[in-house]
Computed example of a mutant assay.
Amino acid sequence: MDAETAAQVVQVPARWFIGQPCTLRTDKAVAELGYRPIVQHDAGLVAVKEALASPAA
């Protein structure tokens, strides 16, 4: 999901937590599903913050 879509689907209370420190564990997805992110975590958060800051958000 791209940042623009996330801004449209993520409910407002969940948006309040954007930018808050958190730990995202992907070890189970990596081990069981071979998960590999297509966007690095930091870059993804920047994209979401920018999308939420845009007038369309």
Rank of each mutant, 00 (worst) to 15 (best):
A6G: 10
D42S: 05
L52P: 00
P21L: 08
R15Q: 13
A51C: 09
Q11K: 09
R15M: 10
R36N: 04
Q20F: 03
P13R: 14
K28Q: 08
A29F: 10
Q40I: 15
D42V: 02
A7L: 01
A7Q: 01
A56P: 01
Q11C: 07
P55L: 12
A14W: 15
D42P: 02
R15Y: 01
P55G: 01
K28I: 07
L45A: 01
T23N: 11
L45E: 07
V48A: 05
V30H: 04
A7W: 01
A57Q: 06
L33V: 07
I18F: 13
M1G: 14
R25G: 05
R36M: 11
T5G: 04
V39R: 07
G19Y: 09
L52V: 07
L52W: 03
L52D: 00
D42R: 12
A7C: 00
S54Q: 14
L24F: 06
G44S: 13
S54C: 02
A7N: 03
G44P: 06
M1A: 06
L45Q: 03
A56H: 02
E32Y: 14
A7H: 03
I38P: 02
V46I: 10
E50G: 04
L24V: 07
E4I: 11
V30K: 07
V9T: 00
A31F: 08
P21Y: 09
V48N: 01
E32Q: 06
V39W: 09
K28F: 03
A47S: 05
D27H: 09
R36W: 04
L33S: 15
D2T: 03
